[in-house]
């Protein structure tokens, strides 16, 4: 296309001929004036894509339904004795029984509370440590070997010490959950902050942002997606450590219900507890998923 060559290349003849050829250029490309092309890219029609998505979501329901059907069939045919595999009906009964006097709700509430407090505390500490290590060379040199060593200790190994120092109470459980939640956030945040686009950081510095402004206006927004995925991991860890803490020493909570049922041979209650833990974990994870969706839309 000759117009284009003339218009773009610094060829000797560009001078006099330029306006005419540029005019052609503009009409070829549909540009009438600068800015006129400023319409947002239009999304392709989504009708068929949306229905595919509907099917994809329903596909996730298939397996649970099959599993439930298998469970129901096995126990209805009495293929496995009731004291090993309770029937769905007996699990429901256990739920009604425990639910009607309020104990079930208390167990759920106390467990959820422990998870949320431990998760919040652990994530905040993880975020702060991750920021220090990810942002500052000195912070990293000073802290990361130590934090790394602490991370290398399997978190459950802290239990005896926690019990000795803090005692068997709420604090020790929350502390254990916080330890579990801390490291995923620390690792993802520190890693992501180290790899924030150096160009953007330099841009911020070139335009006179202070260190704090650089952190809040460039670096943290740039790592929002990593923070959220760290939080997601941390939440899963928090539930894991909750059960560990409650299995070891507690008189309330879902973990306690699990041990208690085991001691009393109540398989139905064990099933109930496990199902509840699954539902609670999945629900809180879905909530974070929503937050993630919103934040990704807002920050990237």
């Amino acid at each position: 296309m000759p117009n284009r060559t003339i218009a773009e290349a610094p060829a000797p003849e560009t001078g006099a001929g330029a306006p005419a050829s540029l005019h052609q250029y503009s009409s070829t490309y549909g540009y009438s004036a600068a800015g006129s092309e400023a319409t947002p890219p239009v999304e392709a029609p989504v009708g068929s894509r949306r229905s595919t998505r509907g099917w994809l979501i329903s596909a996730g329901v298939v397996l649970p339904v099959l599993l439930f059907a298998a469970w129901w069939t096995i126990s209805a045919l009495a293929l496995v004795p009731e004291h090993r595999l309770p029937s769905p009906a007996s699990v429901l009964e256990a739920a009604v029984e425990l639910g009607s006097n309020g104990t079930l709700l208390t167990h759920i509430a106390i467990s959820t509370q422990r998870v949320l407090i431990g998760f919040a505390a652990g994530s905040l500490i993880g975020l702060a440590l991750g920021a220090l290590v990810g942002l500052s060379k000195w912070g990293s040199a000073f802290l990361s070997p130590t934090v790394g060593a602490f991370r290398a200790v399997p978190s459950l190994a802290w239990v005896p010490l926690l019990v000795l120092y803090v005692g068997i109470n709420e604090d020790s459980k929350v502390a254990l959950i916080a330890i579990g939640a801390l490291f995923p956030v620390y690792t993802t945040v520190a890693g992501a902050l180290r790899h924030v686009d150096a160009h953007l950081v330099e841009l911020g510095r070139a335009y006179g942002l202070s260190r704090w402004e650089l952190l809040t206006q460039v670096q943290l927004p740039a790592v929002v997606p990593s923070i959220v995925s760290g939080l997601r991991l941390a939440l899963a860890q928090a539930w894991l450590f909750l059960v560990a803490a409650e299995l070891i020493a507690s008189s309330m909570g879902l973990g306690f219900l699990l041990v208690d049922s085991q001691n009393n041979g109540r398989v139905d209650r064990m099933f109930l507890t496990i199902i509840l833990l699954g539902i609670l974990g999945k629900t809180t994870d879905a909530l974070i998923g929503l937050l993630e969706k919103y934040l990704l839309k807002r920050w990237s």
Partner: peptide
Amino acid sequence: SVGFQEPRLLPW
């Protein structure tokens, strides 16, 4: 004031 070779706009 610097205009960089790349636009370097903050994506968010």
